[in-house]
Nucleic acid binder design. Structure first.
Length: 313
DNA sequence: CGGTTTTGACCTGCGC
DNA sequence: GCGCAGGTCAAAACCG
């Protein structure tokens, strides 16, 4: 699924359409020649990017297949483990399954991915009763890869936070830090930041509520567009001019899975299932893979930094 | 000096 | 009712 979306975004970003500036008259023979040269250069660039796109697609599909096989093994093992441990409390079980209830995933170029949902239904009731004290309050999770040796629980999401507590929880030796939004005194948003017990290099930030003020960066950029009420984390757009473009998978849409599957089949990619946890793990795999990051950066920077192209934009 | 962080105490909800 | 765990408070310390 994520493969489909990532691939779709890559295709979206990397597909080259002829810049409007290329349209010109060919009356001057010398100019015509240079224009032709430029067209050849652009064509070769287009071919290069297309090939790169194909390679990325292939890498992605291989990664997805490997992941899916691993995921099946993990499921088998965990189901066996659950059978052996029936005494595990309901609450803890549901906590461990919490990610599965997420309905939205965003991944950006900095290796940050964001999962969010609105807990207006009762499905989360037992898992997070406190959070449901305010029906409709938005709960979201942000995953940030950091240096494991970095002991600070700081997640740079653009907002101002004031730490008001820290606690060591039972299921994780790493302390959990509690933050309140301090940008606006009346802002009800809180966030909890804790290192993942499984992967110490992963910071998990849980956001509770929605900001009742604009994003701090927007106070300096009044013309910047809003992002559809997305809460806490910086709602990056997909635009390449953005600091951190985001791939957004909206799982709230019932047809999303089918569309993603269709898209992947159209693009020759094996569908890898629709499980949100799968998506999360795949996103992690992607951001972990230096080859993928390098290839992606090369492909994008090739488009952005190419002076001859930049001049035409 | 004001804002932030630290940290122990306290509160609250849940399971037994 | 009790104990446990998560969440919050608030005073002291810290910092620019």
């Amino acid at each position: 699924m994520v493969s489909a979306l990532v691939d779709a975004s890559l295709s979206l970003d990397l597909n080259i359409t002829a810049p409007a500036g290329l349209k010109c008259d060919f009356t001057d023979p010398a100019r015509e020649l240079s224009e032709k040269d430029e067209a050849v250069v652009l064509e070769s660039e287009l071919n290069r990017v297309s090939e790169e796109n194909q390679k990325l697609t292939q890498m992605l599909s291989v990664m997805c297949e490997n992941y899916w096989a691993l995921q099946c093994q993990v499921r088998d093992m965990s189901s066996k483990a659950l059978e052996k441990e029936p005494a595990l409390s309901r609450k803890r079980k549901e906590e461990s399954l919490n990610l599965d209830d997420c309905s939205k995933l965003e991944v950006n170029r900095n290796g940050v991915y964001h999962i969010s949902h609105v807990d207006s239904s009762s499905s989360e009731e037992s898992a997070c009763k406190k959070q449901c004290k305010f029906p409709g309050s938005k709960i979201s999770k942000l995953y940030v890869r950091t240096d494991p040796s970095d002991s600070t629980l700081l997640v740079k999401d653009g907002y101002q936070w004031r730490k008001y507590g820290q606690k060591v929880t039972r299921d994780n030796p790493c302390p959990r830090a509690y933050f309140k939004c301090s940008f606006a005194p009346s802002c009800p948003v809180k966030k909890k930041v804790q290192r993942s017990a499984d992967d110490r290099s992963l910071l998990v930030a849980t956001y509770d509520g929605e900001h009742n003020h604009p994003h701090p960066s927007q106070t300096n950029m009044p013309n910047s567009s809003s992002h559809g009420g997305t809460s806490s984390p910086v709602p990056y757009s997909l635009s390449l001019s953005s600091a951190s473009p985001t791939v957004t998978l909206d799982l709230t849409r019932p047809r999303f899975v089918q569309e993603a599957t269709d898209m992947s089949s159209r693009q020759g990619i094996n569908s890898t299932g629709s499980h949100p946890f799968l998506v999360e793990q795949m996103a992690t795999s992607l951001v972990k893979d230096p080859k993928f990051t390098t290839a992606l950066v090369a492909a994008i920077s090739g488009r952005i930094l190419k002076p001859s192209l930049a001049g035409k934009w």
